[in-house]
Simulated assay, not measured.
Amino acid sequence: MSKHAPMGLPGDAELRLIRIYRKVVECGGFSAAEVELGISRAAISMAMKDLETRLGLRLCQRGRGGFALTDEGAEVYQASLQLLAAMEGFRTRVNGLHAWLKGELNIGITDNLVSMPEMHITHALSALKDRGPEVRINIRMIPPSEIERGVLDGRLHAGVVPALKTLPGLTYLPLYEETSRLYCAAGHPLFLADPITAEQLAEHDAVVPAYAQSPTIKAQHEWLNPTASATDREGVAFLILSRRFIGYLPTHYAERWVLSRQMKALNPEAWHYVTRYSAITRKSGPPNLVLEAYLEELNHLISGHSRAR
């Protein structure tokens, strides 16, 4: 594009276009963004052309070859995340000057924790809404590494991740201990076998996690024959239920299939491990009454659960 004058501070019109652009990038194209944005593909296309004209940059390639960001488009996307996060931080801080809770709480959560029996996250969110009915809650189900990055750069106010490592810029609040066991499905050769040796396990195909694990957890997979992998626990469950694979699942997540006799834990006393989960927040973050209220409710629930043990 031709030489363009430096851009001034974005106004409401530019912010609207930037929000549309962010959603298009996160959806991977115009068509997928239609449903999320609630506007037509033609309107999205016009908005993208308008934003490119205002910025003087070509942001993306679109056409028969599909949707793809240009180098400049990728830079603008990252800048848009910082801009919108800073605006939300400003709004949350100003709203914190009032006596009531108002603003957003953006949380990143690791997949398949909703069936944890303690339900600390769910109950804390409910209590937060009691204290601030106008609080808007946004949950993103994403991998732990993305949650950590989101909390560190301010896109997320809090996250829930497995406590595999600690990063210096984050504060950790212990939440859960999750037990996982080795399962097979009804119809698998090991379903009726008892007892089962490690050598027998190695004779059968296994699905292993493609996400980070602690050395202790990795050791539990050493006896397995890894012929498949999955990026989340739902993917592991899919393959186990195919009756062709064995694999580890959290007990609370597998319970529905165990109760219906579709799955069985193999040598549960021997083949199991524990994963600890923590709520994370950024150290020395800006004042945020919504986040503080949520953490207060979490701490209250955790303390009550500990006393009840």
Rank of each mutant, 00 (worst) to 15 (best):
residue 247 G to R: 02
residue 61 Q to P: 05
residue 264 K to E: 05
residue 35 V to S: 14
residue 208 V to P: 04
residue 88 E to A: 05
residue 166 T to F: 12
residue 245 F to S: 03
residue 295 L to E: 05
residue 283 K to D: 11
residue 233 R to P: 03
residue 7 M to W: 06
residue 300 H to I: 05
residue 249 L to D: 03
residue 212 A to W: 08
residue 180 S to P: 01
residue 76 V to R: 06
residue 142 I to D: 01
residue 275 T to Q: 14
residue 48 M to S: 08
residue 238 F to G: 02
residue 84 L to E: 04
residue 214 S to I: 03
residue 150 G to E: 01
residue 203 E to G: 13
residue 193 A to M: 10
residue 208 V to D: 02
residue 84 L to P: 04
residue 95 N to E: 14
residue 227 T to F: 09
residue 230 A to I: 14
residue 268 P to I: 02
residue 250 P to E: 09
residue 106 N to H: 00
residue 122 T to P: 04
residue 54 R to F: 00
residue 42 A to R: 10
residue 197 T to L: 07
residue 250 P to A: 13
residue 82 Q to E: 12
residue 270 A to L: 00
residue 268 P to Q: 04
residue 1 M to G: 13
residue 241 L to E: 07
residue 17 L to N: 00
residue 133 P to D: 05
residue 269 E to S: 11
residue 96 G to I: 09
residue 127 A to G: 07
residue 244 R to A: 14
residue 119 M to T: 07
residue 141 M to Q: 11
residue 75 E to D: 15
residue 87 M to E: 14
residue 268 P to V: 03
residue 44 I to R: 10
residue 127 A to L: 10
residue 297 E to S: 07
residue 17 L to E: 08
residue 287 P to E: 06
residue 114 V to Q: 09
residue 86 A to D: 12
residue 101 L to R: 10
residue 67 F to M: 11
residue 7 M to T: 11
residue 164 L to Y: 08
residue 196 I to L: 08
residue 239 L to N: 04
residue 51 L to S: 00
residue 8 G to P: 06
residue 237 A to S: 05
residue 136 R to A: 12
residue 300 H to M: 13
residue 102 K to M: 02
residue 255 E to C: 04
residue 85 A to G: 01
residue 247 G to Q: 01
residue 104 E to N: 13
residue 59 L to M: 09
residue 64 R to L: 13
residue 184 C to R: 02
residue 31 S to H: 14
residue 208 V to R: 07
residue 253 Y to W: 08
residue 79 A to C: 13
residue 190 L to S: 00
residue 93 R to C: 02
residue 146 E to G: 10
residue 216 T to Y: 13
residue 1 M to Y: 03
residue 162 P to V: 01
residue 84 L to F: 12
residue 165 K to N: 13
residue 194 D to Y: 03
residue 274 V to C: 09
residue 94 V to P: 02
residue 77 Y to G: 10
residue 115 S to Y: 15
residue 59 L to A: 04
residue 13 A to I: 11
residue 163 A to I: 02
residue 156 L to C: 06
residue 148 E to P: 09
residue 92 T to R: 15
residue 21 Y to D: 02
residue 26 E to M: 07
residue 71 D to L: 14
